[in-house]
């Protein structure tokens, strides 16, 4: 169902071109952040700050689930191509972590968007991504010894996700581009969808 919507979104020419362009911009932004992160020295190559997840967090208040899925897939494939990991196990880690984290962040945003800021959403996403990556690492690489490094790995993810959440909060509050995009998206959506209570905290984070 979701995949069908993504497919039709890519195929349709006029109506969704604007959305597609914004998705491509955020996906490119994600690649840029991933390159920035690549340049930051880390003690272990698999240790990640998760800067590239920022566009997905920002996208939560702008895009629908199929649109977010497309953004996440573009992010994963783009990173895989740029880093040359698309045909390696690392791609599996990236895909598993990113998709699970996106679904978790979307769920938290929709269900508890009114009660939590981007910091809480970012923590939920990072913990999910890290848990999936640890599970994959257990089965593919390290075996059960992986759980020895799980506490520092999760702690690191927890700390960096707080910073990422704070940055997302500041960005959505200060950015002209984001404000403009939200307004346009709202105007576009109004005749199509009736906003209800289940819409969670759509755009409420920008005001926090």
């Amino acid at each position: 169902m979701i995949l069908e919507t993504v497919r039709s979104m890519i195929l349709s020419s006029e109506k969704t071109q604007s959305v597609i362009t914004h998705i491509a911009i955020l996906a490119a932004f994600s690649l840029f952040l991933s390159t920035v992160e690549y340049m930051i020295p880390k003690p272990f190559p698999f240790m990640r700050i998760g800067l590239a997840n920022l566009p997905v967090i920002i996208g939560l208040s702008i895009f629908t689930l199929p649109e977010l899925l497309l953004l996440t897939v573009l992010k994963i494939v783009g990173q895989g191509l740029i880093n040359g990991t698309i045909f390696s196990y690392i791609f599996l880690f990236s895909a598993g972590g990113s998709l699970a984290s996106m679904v978790m962040m979307y769920s938290v945003y929709k269900l508890m968007g009114r009660f939590t800021s981007f910091i809480g959403i970012s923590i939920a996403g990072a913990m999910t991504s890290n848990a999936i990556q640890l599970l994959l690492a257990q089965f593919i690489l390290f075996g059960s010894s992986i759980w020895i490094i799980a506490p520092p790995f999760l702690l690191m993810g927890f700390i960096t996700s707080i910073f990422l959440g704070i940055f997302a909060n500041v960005f959505t509050r200060k950015s002209r581009w984001y404000a403009d995009l939200s307004t346009r998206k709202k105007a576009q959506d109004t005749p199509l969808r009736k906003t209800s209570g289940t819409e969670g905290g759509r755009n409420s984070h920008a005001e926090k």
């Binding site: 890519i10 491509a24 490119a28 690649l31 573009l74």
Partner: peptide
């Protein structure tokens, strides 16, 4: 769509 993403990426860089 990926090509478009890379076009934007190149512009950012």
């Amino acid at each position: 769509l990926l090509s478009k993403q890379f076009l934007f990426f190149e512009h950012i860089v």
